[in-house]
Amino acid sequence: MSVIVDYYNYWIVVFLMMAGFYVVISANNLVKKVVGLNIFQTSVFMLYISMGKVSGGTAPIIIEGVTQYSNPLPHVLILTAIVVGVATTAVGLSLVIRIKHAYGTVEENEFQNEDDAI
């Protein structure tokens, strides 16, 4: 039981990761795939953010009388990864728009058989 309660943040990460991954693989609609990818990436953001927490530590701003701070580095790293995630989503969605123009649909099964088979 304590494994579940003590590490609840990691369980959330695992759940989000698997949920997002499943949507990417199973969704038929391309927009849903992009959304799934987003959830998948968000789980990693949570992983990084929660690993920076030092138990008993406070926000990493110098205050008198405080000796223990949380680690700010993972938070800074994940800012970069969030930007990357936004850029990926933008490229993915713009590809979906162009696919819609070219094929008239964004449902994978509707154009898979047309001329896309490899």
Binding site: V24, V91, G92, V96, D116
Partner: peptide, 14 residues
């Protein structure tokens, strides 16, 4: 090329 790029994007991002 669009569907190819989309598939590449999904796999590459994973």
């Amino acid at each position: 090329c669009l569907t190819a790029a989309f598939r590449y994007l999904i796999m590459g991002t994973i």
